[in-house]
Amino acid sequence: MNLSVNKKVAYIGCLGVIGIISTEFGVIGILPQIAEYYHINIGTAGYLLSLFALTIALTGPFMVLYASRFDKKKIMLYALGLFLISNVGSAFSPPFWLLMVLRILPTILHPAFFSMAIAAAGKDASPQIQMRLTSIIIGGIALAQVTLIPFTTFIASIYAWQFSYVIQALVILFTLAILYKGLPAMPNTEEKSFKNQLSILKRPKFIAGTGLNLFLITAWFCSYSYFADYLSKAMGLTDPQISYMLLLFGVMGVISNYLAGRLLGKYMISTTLFFLAGTFLMPFAFQYVTPSFFNISLVVGFWGVMYGPCFLIGVGYMVSAAQDAKEFANSLQTSFGNLGVSLGTATGGWFISYYGIAVTPWVGIGFGLLALVMILWRAWLDRV
């Protein structure tokens, strides 16, 4: 595969990630409205995010091992098809239990999409080019946060939360058409045994990278999962103002994700330590800022910069320790990343129920410390 084809796969993969992530994380901006509509508390509404992520964590590696034997293009199409069904069904505001089922449905192939896209884009490329191409695909997470998520939150604030699902469905339908027409068939040409792929689970470097991925994402999602509720109740912002903050958060995340993609290949440890520092600094920034719109914007911008590359960092650490089983490593990154989303959301929700929404930014510090331990362990392993 030549570099131009690699880039084409990466950009189409990025477009797919935008649709997928807007479905997964777009619910964050409308959680208060969903809670009000179904007459449930915010913690219960948070299950729409945490159970989505937990299901991916539990099923992802097995589904990717199974799906890796099939044509990558077909798996990516099937994955987006499930997300389309999920969004269309959710737009009709079904009973809460059915809304939950529709949320969980596309998790079956969620990790497979990421794994297939990253593996296809990085085929026959050097490790440094692979990281840049991966940053394009993972950049879809940040782009979703700067485009669809704030836009759908803004539309939901004007009309109703159901409209966010309509918009997401249209974007995924468009992506399906681009993927179908834009990519050639990508059949599996290299049979890998399950035993060889599972062997990466015994490698200390891979274990350290997995731990970092889990704890770093957990640290961020203790607070990010309740972004809208925190800015509304603790900072006093209106719904339109929160949509602007989501836009700012996403813009800064896109910038930092791009920079991290350039730096991680050369300075993995120092780059990771820099962005990890945000989990310790962000709570103090919110604690001591005066609650004006401008000052809150500065803190949210800082939050977006520090949060932006967390998924890319996880990919970098885990795949670098498993070059011989990239698809499986990518699936584990997605699974443990979503386990972090679920654990962070559940932990944040528990603290909110006992101590109130104002405690949210402080909850992730403990997980940040655990992530620091994993970084230092990996640095030690790289030297021995």
Rank of each mutant, 00 (worst) to 15 (best):
S4N: 09
I12W: 00
V17T: 11
I40R: 08
N41I: 13
A45Y: 04
L51I: 15
A53V: 07
L65Y: 01
F70D: 09
K72L: 03
I85R: 03
N87F: 01
P94M: 11
P94S: 07
W97C: 13
R103H: 12
T107Q: 12
S115F: 06
A120S: 09
K123C: 02
Q128G: 09
I129K: 04
Q130M: 09
L133C: 00
A142C: 14
I155K: 07
A156D: 14
Q162D: 10
L170E: 08
G182T: 08
L183I: 11
N188Y: 00
E190H: 01
L198Y: 15
N213C: 15
T218I: 05
T218G: 03
M235E: 14
M235Y: 04
M245D: 11
L246I: 04
F249S: 07
V251F: 09
I255A: 13
N257W: 01
L264V: 05
M268Y: 01
M268K: 10
T272C: 09
L276H: 02
A277F: 12
F280P: 12
L281I: 15
F294A: 15
G304M: 00
Y307C: 09
G308D: 02
G308P: 06
L312K: 04
G314P: 10
G316I: 04
M318E: 01
A325Y: 02
S335H: 03
F351W: 07
I357D: 05
I365Q: 14
L369S: 13
A371S: 11
R378M: 05
L381T: 00
R383G: 15
